[in-house]
Design a protein around this nucleic acid. Structure first.
Lengths: 191, 191
DNA sequence: AAAAAAGCTTGACGAAGGTCAAGCCCTAAA
DNA sequence: TTTAGGGCTTGACCTTCGTCAAGCTTTTTT
């Protein structure tokens, strides 16, 4: 079971699973390798899985009517991602998920997760606690977006996630923060 | 138990609770009445409760360094609100929650909710499912904020929540959408 | 190693929307 | 019914930031 060490450690930070529960949980997992620039989720197809990044980096983005990209999330090791709306409602995705590097991800199907959460209380607890944190984080992002200037948002991000900011292309960061790449360039050149 | 009908109906849309579980759950609930303009959460104090609105309207907002208000959420009947970060971490709140009308809210304490979620599987399921939906919604709001113009955001909101838009002051809606009240006024006068 | 693709920078320009200030309107209290 | 306060509107102005275009640098591919 060494191959699922990372995700099991992640869960262990929230709840304790028995040997039997671990076995049941890992039985629904599937490891997938993707190459840089490969899509894991595409509009039109249902986002069947919750995806956990073991190694690499992935961004989720929305392509608007004018062809502009808007990044929903940037994930590296130990992050989950999916098109949540598509995943929860089994409707076609509206977002792309694209590997920014060659990556290894662990995937778990909606039906399997729901079935296990229905049977295993501690797993249900884990997902509840994890998602609550994610929600608090998402709320914070909304407020940051409407209350701070571009420059503040940029430096906040770079200071909070310096390793991610160095790792992803600047235009990805720009579309995550809602700033044009040119403006990011100008902000950087000021100092 | 007629007094908890609304919130129990809300839960019943996600999971089924036994008589005994309903009794345990309602035992941790407390009903509070607040007057218009009264604060339910204030910066500096821990947001102890998850709050459910039975009747009335409440907004949660952040006051920035320059004294500008930024609305995190606008809730009416059948909505939950809290300062999630404060509630989850038992740290002082950063947001205000203010009654926009005389309101009736149901409150449940963090410790009580956690204790019950640890014991009652279906309640844990309920919160998990509800929060997952809230997260998907919050993600959507982030994307709307960075990808649409002020005018689009305004009309989207008014079309999606016409009854809320009519019920709350325009400056509240403005600070929710990240637009100045003057601009909202101009957008409206165009048509 | 050469060619192509992807990403970053800089400048000129313009539009969207914020700020400030004044006045109006409506509700609720005296 | 008058007055005060809260909320909304309108105008003038100005700042921020996005767009377009061109050139440069770095990375990837053949």
């Amino acid at each position: 079971m060494g191959k699922y060490k990372e995700i099991l450690d992640h869960i262990a930070r929230y709840v304790e699973l028995s040997e039997r529960e671990i076995a049941e949980f890992t039985s629904i997992l599937k490891t997938t390798r993707v190459k840089k620039r490969q899509f894991i989720i595409q509009p039109g197809f249902v986002s069947e899985y919750r995806n956990y990044i073991v190694k690499g980096a992935v961004r989720v983005f929305y392509l608007d009517d004018l062809g502009k990209e808007h990044t929903v999330s940037i994930g590296v090791e130990d992050w989950f991602f999916t098109d949540f709306h598509s995943y929860l409602n089994r409707t076609p995705a509206e977002y792309f998920a694209e590997a920014l590097e060659d990556s290894i991800i662990i995937q778990m199907k909606y039906d399997d997760v729901e079935e296990l959460c229905g049977r295993i209380h501690s797993l249900c607890q884990y997902f509840r606690l994890y998602i609550e944190k994610a929600l608090s984080h998402s709320n914070q992002r909304v407020i940051t977006n409407i209350s701070k200037t571009s420059e503040e948002r940029y430096w906040d991000y770079v200071n909070t996630y310096p390793q991610i900011a160095n790792r992803v292309p600047q235009y990805v960061l720009a579309s995550y923060l809602g700033i044009s790449p040119e403006s990011i360039s100008r902000i950087r050149s000021k100092s």
